[in-house]
Amino acid sequence: MSKKYQAIVEKDGVRYFHRFSSHQRVQHVVLFTSVITLALTGFPLRHAEEAWARPLYDFMGGTEIAPLIHRAAGTVLLALFVYHTAYWMIRFYREHVVKLRERGELTVGSFFRELFSLEMVPNKKDLVDIIQLWKYLFYFTNRPPRHDRMSWREKFDYFAPYWGIPILGPAGAALWWRDEISHVVPGIVLNAAYIMHTDEALLAVLFLFFVHWYNVHYAPEKFPAATVWLTGYLNEHDMIHEHYNEYVRVMIENGLEDEIKPQNFGGEEYEW
């Protein structure tokens, strides 16, 4: 990946740091398109008695069409889940397992060590960052946490759908194929599927539309919208603010050690 993309590009005197490949960005677009579609066709049904439900549902196609759209979007999301799982597994194999084997170091222990050192896997550093963040928020220090390539919040954002889809998807599928599935499991499973589907969906939507959107839309330095999901590159200012450790590391690797800027302290990072 890093071969295809330059780690740092400079445009109009601003440095941009590579974050996401186009492959990943496309996956994100598919993800949010299907999730928003699912929410728009699912929530009017979940809250059918609210005044907004009927107009919205009618807009989404009404009781005949909206369920079809919902199921189609659900199928896309489940397919994306499978695809993404295959995607990281293949990359893990190519970029880690193969290399381990080449070096003759492939053991069960080293396999899992490599697996758990993937950038998305939560680790001890995240705990340190969380503690540092709360210290910072309660004014006990003037130094914000220094995140690695993936901050704990990004990891949470990543694992939220990764936990959510396996709950929502099969439950949704069971409710969709309710007649067929009744030949395999008793009807009460559908009761369970119903709760799983509706409540997990509520959690996902409440989380996405506030917490995630805060991170990328509402937050003062992002407002009205972050661009990294489109360009794949993050500017130096935000990089220092959000991923200082990663920033320093990339700068050193690219021979720019002398130009590393100090971490922003005490509010400078929030200047517009």
């Binding site: 004014y139 003037n142 130094r143 050193i252 100090p262 302290f265 005490g266 509010g267 400078e268 929030y270």
Partner: peptide, 22 residues
């Protein structure tokens, strides 16, 4: 925190801090 960004009970020194990171 953003309302009072400059305030803090305890302060770390910037320069030392970032040299240390490097």
């Amino acid at each position: 925190r953003r309302l009072f960004p400059k305030f803090s009970f305890f302060k770390e020194k910037k320069a030392e801090n970032y040299e240390q990171v490097i």
